[in-house]
Amino acid sequence: MRLIPLSELASVIRSKNAGPHVLTLDVLFSRQPDYLRLKQMRFFSPDRVAAAYGISTDQVLKVVYFDPAWAVKINLMRPLTSGDVGDSDVYGAQQHAPLFTLMVPEAQAINGIRIR
């Protein structure tokens, strides 16, 4: 199975606070089949997300799939509460970059035709 960066399949990859203790990552897919395929695989496991951020699995609080927006939401425990001394991103708006390069399986080709 060929792997491609998540940024090739997603139309939105973003991060933001959900309250001062939680950072929430949203990935919205451009095409429904890509979303459904990765949802079916439960691709966004806490282990995979933790590995992308170099954090422990228990810091990944929740992974939620949201069909109406072809989206997956991932909640991480912030290392520091928003605005505490030492925090470097008060709004949590620039913590999403590791997801761009997360390698995801491309749709498999059947009879030479790529299914998307």
Binding site: N17, A18, G19, V22, T24, L61, F66, P68, A71, N75
Partner: peptide, 9 residues
Amino acid sequence: SLYEKSDPW
């Protein structure tokens, strides 16, 4: 529904 929320459902 996802924006700044911990669970869109």
